[in-house]
Amino acid sequence: MFANILISEINMNDNSRRGFMGKAFGGVAAVGAVASLFAMKRSWDPLPSVKAAGFTTLDMLGYKENELVTEKWRGKPIFVLKYTEEMLEAMDEAQKPRVITVGEASYLVTLGLCTHLGCIPSYEKEDKSFACACHGGTYDIVGNVTKSPPPRALDIPPFTIKGNTLVLGEVGPEWLKMKENGLTL
């Protein structure tokens, strides 16, 4: 195919009828090639049903303090941790903005995937931190990195607060603010 085009390049030098036919064929073939590449690209896209199943609603009243619960959103693990009073008091200025408040209580809600290469870190209850076994990264109680290789804090999934529930996958003002402040991707 490619070789044909190269050969027709040569033929085109003698402005003969064959040269013209070569050009005409090349033009048609190029349009067809681009069109089929587009169709192929679209066939690899996630299906609409996959996209539509991208929302999860969490009832925030059901969580116990200092107990990590792993929920599921878009097939990915979501960490939900209800903070204790002491935890909140011990936080510094770099940690506070990542806390999500729903009603009376405050929570950590992040993707449970290490930002390095996507392993699931484990919660160290005593230490109040997260540790990733894959390449040894660690995170603090709000998901900020305390030891590399992870390049950034645990990501916070897009959310919106509706009463006592949190809808994951829907962009709300609180999340937008976090994103603008560079707290999450």
């Binding site: 690899w44 996630p46 996959v50």
Partner: peptide, 12 residues
């Protein structure tokens, strides 16, 4: 996501 056809490795 395009390579996977989903947010995570799944049926697609």
């Amino acid at each position: 996501e395009w390579i996977r056809g989903d947010y995570v490795p799944a049926q697609a």
